[in-house]
Simulated assay, not measured.
Amino acid sequence: MLLAAGPLLLLPAGCGSKPADPFATAEADRIECRIGTATDFDRTCAVERTAGPDGLILTIRHPDGGFRRLLVTRDGRGVIAADGAEPATVSVESGDGILVSIGGDNYRLPATVKPAAAR
């Protein structure tokens, strides 16, 4: 699904030929999440990155031991569910982030939205 604002890039462009790594800060391995019936987001979910045969896989680990796997797409959708029966819904939340929802779980991930003219 392409969003009206343009395709999503999970790794924002940086200086030089390689994209900047949005997980390269001190809190790089933690993202904000709201799991199940929680009412507030907190920075308690850990993110692991793995290169898979279809591309970059993000494994998001919940504080209770649960997890979700997301596949970073190259077609502008951002991410999709890498396994399981529930699809991921992606929406632009800010200029530098997306909201990914799967079932009752929600994750804020760093991302850049390309302008429509760059498509």
Rank of each mutant, 00 (worst) to 15 (best):
V72F: 00
R108G: 05
R68S: 10
A26E: 13
L11W: 15
L9E: 11
F41H: 03
T25R: 13
D105M: 06
G78C: 06
D54E: 15
I60E: 02
A85H: 08
G16Q: 11
L56F: 00
C45Y: 07
I31F: 01
L99Y: 03
L99N: 02
G66C: 06
I57Q: 08
D42W: 02
A38Y: 02
G78W: 05
G16F: 10
A88L: 07
F67M: 12
T112S: 14
T89S: 11
S94R: 15
G103Y: 08
R30G: 00
D42E: 10
P22D: 09
A13N: 09
V47G: 05
A88S: 08
V72W: 01
L71A: 02
V100C: 07
F41V: 08
T37A: 13
T39S: 10
A28T: 03
L58K: 03
Y107N: 07
V113G: 01
R74V: 06
L11P: 00
G76H: 10
A51W: 07
S17L: 13
V100W: 02
G36A: 14
G14E: 12
E48H: 14
E86F: 02
E86Q: 13
E86Y: 02
R34D: 01
R61K: 14
E27H: 10
I57M: 05
T39W: 01
E32D: 15
D96P: 04
R30M: 07
R43E: 10
S94C: 11
G66N: 14
G16Y: 09
N106G: 06
R34W: 10
V92D: 02
R34E: 10
G55W: 03
E32G: 12
G14L: 06
P22K: 04
T44P: 00
E48A: 15
T112Y: 13
T89D: 06
P19F: 11
R77N: 05
A24H: 10
G36F: 04
D64Y: 07
T89V: 12
T50G: 04
T59Y: 05
P53E: 13
L11I: 02
I80H: 00
T44C: 09
S91G: 07
D64I: 07
I60C: 04
A46W: 04
V92N: 03
F23Q: 00
P19V: 12
A46R: 15
D75N: 14
L99G: 04
R69K: 08
L71V: 01
T25L: 04
D105A: 08
L11H: 14
S17G: 11
V100D: 05
G76R: 05
A26I: 08
T112A: 15
E93F: 11
